[in-house]
Write a protein that binds this DNA or RNA. Sequence first.
DNA 1: TCTGGGGTCCTAGGACCC
DNA 2: TCTGGGGTCCTAGGACCC
Length: 416
Amino acid sequence: MPPRLIFHVDMDAFFVSVEELFDPALKGRPVVVGGQRHERGVVSAASYAARKFGVHSAMPLRTAAKLCPQAVFVDGHPDRYRDYSYRIHAVLNSFSPQVEMASIDEAYLDMSGTERLHGPPLRAAHALHIKMKSATQLNCSIGIGASRLMAKVSSAQAKPNGVLWVLPGQEARFLAPLDVAVIPGVGKVMERNLLALGIKKIGDLARLPDSELEERFGKWGLALAGKAQGQDAGGWFDTEVGENTVPKSISHEHTYNDDTASPDQLESTLMRLSEMVARRLREASLQARTIQLKLRYQDFTTITRAHTLPSPSQLDNEIFEQVRTLFRKHWKRGAAVRLLGVQASSLNGQAGASAQLDLLDGGKQQRWQQALSAADRLRDKYGESSVSLASGMKATFRERTHENPAALPGKNKPTP
DNA sequence: TCTGGGGTCCTAGGACCC
DNA sequence: TCTGGGGTCCTAGGACCC
């Protein structure tokens, strides 16, 4: 069997580049995307000019402002990025039937067997590079290899705006001089652990016997030994391109600008987050069995508390009631809260689940779903805050939502 | 420096069942 | 009296990625 041919396509400074398309005056300047300089938050993306000052993503905005006072701070625009992500996806789909978006701005393509259509790998990559630029006005970097891992590592080495192919058989030699931290999955903690063993470069790692790595780091250690040779070696990397499509969890969270201990404020945030999660479940035709609350206090201590429902749900009120129960049980009353989050997991497609629900309950469930779909459409039209579940809370209705009172699930509330 | 929001995967312990 | 073993589900926390 011939080796696989995998492309990893990674957009260069994606958020910054999109912002530059909307405001060309940003070009060439140090730009920080993610919020204003004094806000509570972190850098989502920094332009190459800003990176020269030591600014990088995940850094607190206030730190970035100190390192680079002359930077332009720009709020993020998720809708814009999603829109460009779709365009990128469309370009990629025209090159291979096997495309997997790994995040909003990067994708894997399985290009095995496309030589007849696209020619040899480098020619295909250059054609893709040019088409991406003309279709989206954005630069990308492309890594090519016989595994996801090699493609991913190569695209990072190719940045910015480059193409790099590591020939089959040359993987270990290519990786050897690189820091262990370039291996996807090796973060700060693992890097420190390896450094303590005198392992700094991937070549050092490759010299260690597999058995020692397994002994010290378990299953992960064994995978690491394979990665030092450029193999996908278990876990997420070891899947077919295009296999990872159904999400495992859907969540929303919110960090307050000012910490709060007001039960009303906290519970209405939970309601809003529950609605957002439920809505996305319905959009994806998924139902969740496990509902999780995330709670972060002022001092940053964070807890998660979960509950698994007897039958799955995609309904605002069921999710909210669960999360509120968890909240009332575990929140230290009076303690100021920094962040709240709601997560739905143990997801399954609707087909099986709704059949089960029909069996249990008949029309009530369906009426709820119709009401909620109508509410979803209203939110599309008038914004997220225009429609809200009333269930005993202060709800915010705008005048125009009364045009269609039947669409408000808070009225004449059935309890499924 | 004072720490976002959306995800994935792994580990470890306890419950529960056979 | 002291004491199995394996499998699966659930929960909590943490590392990691973009």
